[in-house]
Computed example of a mutant assay.
Amino acid sequence: MKLRSQNPILLYLIFTLIFSSVVWVLTLNAPNAGRIAGRMFGYGIMWCPALATIVTFKLTGRKMSDLAWNLGKTKYLWSSYLIPLFYSLVAYLIIWSAGWGDFYNLSFVNDTAHEFGWDTLPHWLFIIIFFIMNGVIGMFAGISTALGEEIGWRGFLVPELAKKMGYTGVSLTTGLIWGIWHYPLLVFGSYNNGTPAWYGLICFTISITAVSFIFTWYRMKSGSLWTGVLLHASHNLFIQSFFTPITQPNAKSAWYYDEFGAVIPAVIVVLAIYFWSRRKELTSIGEYLS
């Protein structure tokens, strides 16, 4: 049965909620989930938007091949990889300079070097090698999870919203929906830094809404959902797998570092304003939705 007359955005959001609810319950019911279970739940939740897109397309008579699978211009792909590295580096340089955390976390470096069997390497050399390996090899794992979300958020939702509103409205709406989608695990789980729930929630919401302006700009400019995949994967990779763990926390760190502290949202907001100021460079809907 095809539901061509139905609101595809509403269908997508309903199915995203249904599928995500299953993973939310499983995750919250496993507070002691280790590496294996945590990875499975993580993959599961990040592929719910893609699954919702598939069902929505099936019900509305669309084809998944209609999504913006083309790679687009190489410069936009490289920029999508490098921009999260840039704002993460700026944020953590501020954090280290202000004394809200120190470079570097000796325990993390020693433990990680030991896992690789590189205990004898000087710390400075191991950090460089780990940064390069993480930034290259780690991207494959990051892309495999980010793709699940981006098929939904930037592949489907952004183009659909762009039929009804402009760049600013699309960015705000997508960012808020994307942020709220994380709330069940943020509020009821342990997906934060240990600060009060309201504080982490505010920082995270500002961060994800602001970064949506960057993601939307590249989606519209490039005509490719792969820019969103690379932005998303790079954001998660450098913040979660390098800069946060490489930082030695202190009593103030939880309030300032990682995705639930104040610095990263502040830096991203500045960058979001920059991309918003360039909104007139975006082409018409017909040129970037396919």
Rank of each mutant, 00 (worst) to 15 (best):
F260N: 11
S277H: 03
I264G: 00
S277E: 08
Y274K: 01
P265K: 09
D258A: 11
T283F: 00
E287S: 12
Y274M: 06
L282N: 06
A262F: 11
I285Y: 15
V270T: 05
T283I: 08
S277W: 03
A254F: 01
R278F: 04
L271N: 03
Y257A: 12
W255D: 12
G286Y: 10
A262W: 04
S284I: 09
I264Q: 11
W276V: 06
G261A: 06
D258I: 01
G286R: 08
V263L: 09
G261E: 10
I268T: 11
A272L: 06
F260T: 11
R278P: 02
D258F: 14
F275M: 06
W255L: 13
V270H: 01
S277K: 09
Y274L: 12
I273M: 12
R279Y: 06
V267L: 07
L282I: 14
S277A: 11
V263M: 08
I264H: 06
I268E: 05
Y274C: 00
L271K: 04
R278Q: 14
E259V: 13
G261V: 05
I285D: 02
V270G: 04
V269T: 14
W255P: 00
Y274R: 06
Y256D: 09
E287A: 14
E259P: 03
R278G: 01
A266W: 00
A262D: 03
Y257Q: 14
G286K: 11
I273V: 15
T283W: 00
R279F: 05
A272E: 01
T283G: 13
S284P: 00
E287L: 10
V269R: 08
P265M: 10
P265L: 11
Y257F: 12
A254D: 09
A266Y: 00
Y256F: 15
Y256P: 03
I268Q: 10
S284N: 15
A266M: 13
A272I: 03
E259L: 12
I273T: 03
R279G: 04
G286Q: 13
R278T: 03
E287W: 04
I264V: 15
V269K: 08
L282E: 07
K280C: 01
L282T: 06
V263S: 10
V270P: 01
E287D: 14
L282A: 10
D258C: 00
S284E: 14
L282F: 06
A254K: 13
A262E: 04
P265F: 08
A254P: 02
L282S: 00
E259D: 13
